[in-house]
Each structure stands twice: as C-alpha cells, then as structure tokens.
Design a protein around this nucleic acid. Structure first.
Lengths: 347, 347
DNA sequence: CTGAAAGCGCTTACAG
DNA sequence: CTGAAAGCGCTTACAG
C-alpha cells in the first residue's frame, strides 16, 4: 500500500503538497496538481482514512443507530432495505460511509422499559470512532432516548421521530395528509361509518395519522365517533383483534382505515374470519405500501410512503450539516394513495 | 474527550502501561491494572479507534459489501433485516462494527453486465479503512466478482455464494436438503406430477434447490419430466408466467415446488387466474419463509431458512478468522419445512 | 505556491 | 512489570 510520503517522493514534492492536492486542490498550482494526480492514479494511491480521521479529529463515517428490542423479535422496520439503499448511495457520493453501531449489549438482556440498549454506549462509540454524524432510526418505542444524541452536539438526523437540538433534524412522511386523503377517498366512495385502527400511543407517525383521519372526517362532513376508533400497535395481530372488535359493534363500520399495512392485513383476515367480503361488506385501507400490500387478496389500497426518498432526504439533511453550518428544517415527505382492490373503488 | 496520555498522568503511569491495560491486561500487575481501570471508568475513557487502527494497521471494522444493481430497483434480499441484526450483534460482542461499503458509483450507471458497481473500488475502500474483514452479500447476479475479494487476502465470508480463497469461506442454507424434503412431502400427499419453478441459472442456491428437487423425486420413485421443469428468476412475475406455462401443459402438474416464496406467490396468483383452487386443484410449496408467506391466501407451505442464523454464522466464521489463523469450513444451515395451507396436507 | 515541523492518540518492540 | 521512544499516515498552521 502506497503512502502519501512515497507518492510525494516519486513526484518530487512534499507530503504537504500531496495532501493539498487531495484536500484543497485550488491551493496548488495546476502543473504540480495534475502531475501528482496522475502519478497517484498510476500507483492507485488513496489516503489512509484512519490517519486522516486522527489528524482531522473527525472521520468520514456516519453512525447508524438502529436498535431493535430483542425481546420483541418480530419487530421490523417497514422498509429498512430501501432506506439503507437510499442512505448509502447518497452518503457515498459525498465520500461518507455508514457505520452500523451496535453496543455489546446487543441481543442481551436489557432493563425493562429501556427503549435503547444503552444510549450512553452509543454516544461513546460516536466519540471513539470520531463519527461525523448520526442517523437514528426509530426503534418503534420510546423516542426520548434519542434526545441524548440530539444534545451530543454532533449532526443528527432522525427518521420518523421529531428530534430537536442545535444540530438535529428529522425526516418523516406527511402522515396526516396521507391519512386524510385515504379517509376522503373512502368518504367519496359513499362510506359514512369509517373506522380507524391507530398505531401505538406516543408514536409520532401514529399520532399524525390519527390526526389526519380526524381531519379527513371533518373535510367530508362526517362525525367523529368514539366507537369507531380503536388503538393498535402497528402489528398484524393487533389489526386482527381490533378489527374483530369493530365488527362486533352495534353499528359496525363500512370502511376501516388502518394506520399500517400490517394491521390492515390483520383486518382483512378478521373480516374474512367473520364471513365478510372485502370490499363488498367492508372496505379496508392501509398505510405504508409494503411489499405484502399488493400480494394479499384483495390487494390492499394503501397510503404509500416514499421509501427510497427517506434515505435520500436523510442523507441530504445530514450532508448539509456536515458540509455547512446550518441546520435544515424537518423534511416532510409527500405520500401517495395507491388504489388497489380492498377499498372497492375499482370497477 | 480524555486521552490515554491524560489518563496515564492521572494514574502516575506511562501511556504504554495504559495501553497494555486495555490490550494485554495479563502483562500488567494486578494493582496498577485495577487502578487504571477504575480511573478510566471514572473519566469515561475509551481509546480512540482511529489512532488504534493507524498504529495497529487494522481497524475494528468489518466491511459489508451489499451491492444492488440499481437498474433493477425491485431487487431485494429476502431477509436482509434479520441478517444484519444477527451480524451486528454477534460482531459487536467481539468489539467489531459493520461498515456499509458503497462506491461513489452507487446509484449511478454502471457497465452493462457488471455484477458489482466496481469490485476494485470496494477493495480500495477496504485498504483505506484498514478493514479487518469483509462480509459479502450475494447481489443475486454474477458471483464471480466476489473472487476479487477472496483473493485480496483479508478474511472474507460470503452469504449464499461459494467463495474460496486462503481466508475465505461462506454460509448458506442446506438448499438441496430443504428442497428434497418439500418434494418428498408433496409425494407423500399422493402427488405424482410435481413440477418445479427454479431460480436463475448460475445462482448457487437455485442450483442446489433444483438438485434437491431431483433428489426428492428420486427418493419418491418419481420420474423426472422435462416438461415439469421451468426456469424462473426468483421474482414474483416469473413465478406467475412460468406457472401459467406449466398449467397449459398437456398433463399439467398437480403440485409445484417454487424455488422462492416470491415465485410461489406468483404461482398462486396464476393458479387463481386460471380458475384453479389451491391446494384443491394444484398444490404449491415455496422456499424462504419470508413474511408474505403466512399472509397470502392460502397461507404458503414453504421451506424456511434460518434467517437470524445466517448473520450469526457469518459473524462466527469471520470472528474465528479475525482472532485466529484457521479458515473455517463452509457452513450449511439446516432448513425447516413449514406446513401451512397451500400444499393441502392440513385437514 | 510550497516545504519543514508539529501534532492527532494510540501500539509495540526494546531496554531495563 | 514498566517506561522512553519510534512510528502508524495523514493534516495544518506557520514561514518563506
């Protein structure tokens, strides 16, 4: 492996000049710059990142905090894959790489109620590796733990968690607008009793979707009915159970807006178990547009999130903090209603 | 941020001693070791990884090569999430972290036919960051590109690709055994014309599954019939198209083994489109046990892979190479036949 | 525009 | 068992 010193010797310049060629090319004369660049290419030279990080006091890596509660093995992010893809390609085009942080506590026991294995251990990792910034993925539970990061001073961008701090921002879908659109669509199809199965209390996207549901009802001049609002937890099982409860009401809904596709699928199964046809007897709309949505029968009408856009937007926000001094405002990604068969609007 | 020097001063020892306490505790007297450890804990000291990597010529990071062809945006790993989870928790318990490698070419155009954005660029990253090892995730296409890594000399473990080299090994499911079991199961249910929709040619797991299919037929004393073997590409659409073709045969199959759940779902849809009932008119079995499998109707009988085990096994193999000198043999993970409704064996 | 020198924070033979 | 010293490969004021 060739070093800057060797390259410098070969070129008849000092290591300082070599360094400048790669870091502030403008400060080097065109002739020597081109010469160094050419030889570097020939020797396949590239700077040692450890040395670089050490002297700069900052690495070219961004930490990814994605902590899953192992007591709940079923937990899954609805679209982690697209998110990572978006993140890594956007970051790499600016020379940054993603370091997946894990504490040694990972996979072990943790204090009940702790939403993160150990925020302090993560912050520690951050210092050890001299990370340039942090991407925080909502672990689905208590988001307060994230504030530790937001206050650590380094650039942070959270996904689906309202993070605030001097150098912290976040990206999320426009959950309220998406939910409202879904409800309006159902109302336009003639439904008057539109129920909702919400996400867990305290979860920001869940709250926003409920808000959107209410807004959608209002816009369609429909009354809010407490008996048509039930609380789920985003997972399929809760969709099943809550749907069963809704269907047992005196006046059951003719349409249901579930705050996640997982729950919508559960609702579909519950309707079938109750001998009802979807969308004939009851219409169902979900949220997310995960892969399953198009595979179930009937195919699920749902509010699609811009999955790849999440990663790109997060990377974008982070990069403006890394390269500049300003903290970008929160990003709210537009959603899109994908109409399939479960809402009955197709002929 | 406190450094080793500061810690040393506080403890009245040299930095060399501080370093030894953290790296070869056995070479330090118990008294000074405990003293240094205590003070270190009080000051929340932890060594700077960049400095460490620089002087050791090797970082505590493992690179993850997961290159997806962006020309094919639909490509997805059947269980990336579990895999990453398994990897990161196993690695972190030994102090290693995962660095998601990306070349700046990511998301841009690439040479047609190139299976990896640029293997050389990845190897380059590997040197720059002084990575301790590499985890290679099959990108679903030409696996030859991986040999560049295997020959780079550093510890490599590939997933689902037969990688060989001085310090290279791989982990995969026992695809043949799993497929054979699925076929035997169908035969035991009385099926005589069992078809298969294979994965793409040249793909190792696909080949092994086909092999298992043939073995299963042999074990059940069933003849191999060319008209009952069609080639898919692991994706749903191909399952749909190939199933339609199978159903159009003179003597259509009464059961189909699809080499992936995605294709099995496609097959399910094709059967339905043809007015056939599953499993009444034709039985279907898949492979993978992805989330969708239990959500479709009828729920899919499938060969489950040990998703979390993949990550753990890969990390294990890598760790023995990182900490020792031996190269572990390939790992073949057992599969498990999960019987649901699509094969008709349940009453 | 360029070079000499100090420094980033560790680890590791080498002496003692 | 411990310390002094060299070295890992860069970057960055500071002079010139």
């Amino acid at each position: 492996m060739v070093t800057a010193r060797q390259l410098a010797q070969l070129c008849g310049v000092s290591v300082a000049t070599v360094s400048r060629v790669f870091n502030r090319p403008a400060t080097v004369s065109a002739a020597t710059r081109e010469h160094v660049e050419r030889v570097a290419r020939e020797l396949d030279y590239s700077p040692n990142e450890s040395a670089r990080a050490l002297s700069r006091q900052r690495s070219a890596m961004v930490g990814l905090v994605w902590d899953t509660d192992h007591r709940r093995p079923s937990w899954r992010h609805p679209f982690l894959q697209d998110l990572l893809l978006g993140l890594k390609s956007a970051l790499s085009s600016h020379g940054y790489h993603l370091l997946m942080l894990a504490t040694s506590d990972d996979g072990r026991s943790r204090t009940p109620g702790a939403s993160l294995a150990d925020p302090v251990a993560y912050v520690n990792m951050t210092r050890r590796h001299q990370l340039a910034g942090l991407v925080l993925i909502d672990s689905g539970t208590d988001a307060d733990a994230f504030s530790v990061f937001a206050h650590s001073g380094l650039p942070c961008v959270a996904l689906d968690v309202a993070l605030s701090g001097p150098r912290a921002t976040y990206v999320t879908s426009d959950n309220a607008a998406g939910a409202a659109e879904a409800v309006r669509h159902l109302a336009a199809l003639g439904h008057r009793r539109i129920a909702t199965i919400t996400g867990p209390r305290g979860n920001a996207p869940a709250t926003a979707r409920t808000e959107g549901y209410l807004r959608g009802l209002a816009e369609a001049d429909l009354p809010v009915r407490d008996d048509l609002m039930v609380t789920g937890d985003f997972y399929r099982e809760s969709g099943f159970v809550r749907m069963r409860r809704l269907l047992a009401r005196k006046e059951p809904p003719t349409a249901v807006f579930a705050a996640s596709d997982e729950m919508a699928v559960g609702a579909l199964l519950a309707a079938r178990a109750a001998g009802l046809r979807v969308p004939g007897d009851v219409a169902v709309v979900g949220f997310d547009d995960i892969e399953v949505a198009s595979l179930v029968d009937p195919a699920l009408t749902t509010v699609a999130q811009d999955k790849r856009g999440f990663g790109t937007a997060a990377a974008g926000a982070l990069l403006t903090m890394l390269d500049g001094d300003e903290t970008p405002p929160p990003v709210r990604l537009p959603t899109k209603l994908v109409i399939r068969d479960s809402c009955g609007s197709r002929r």
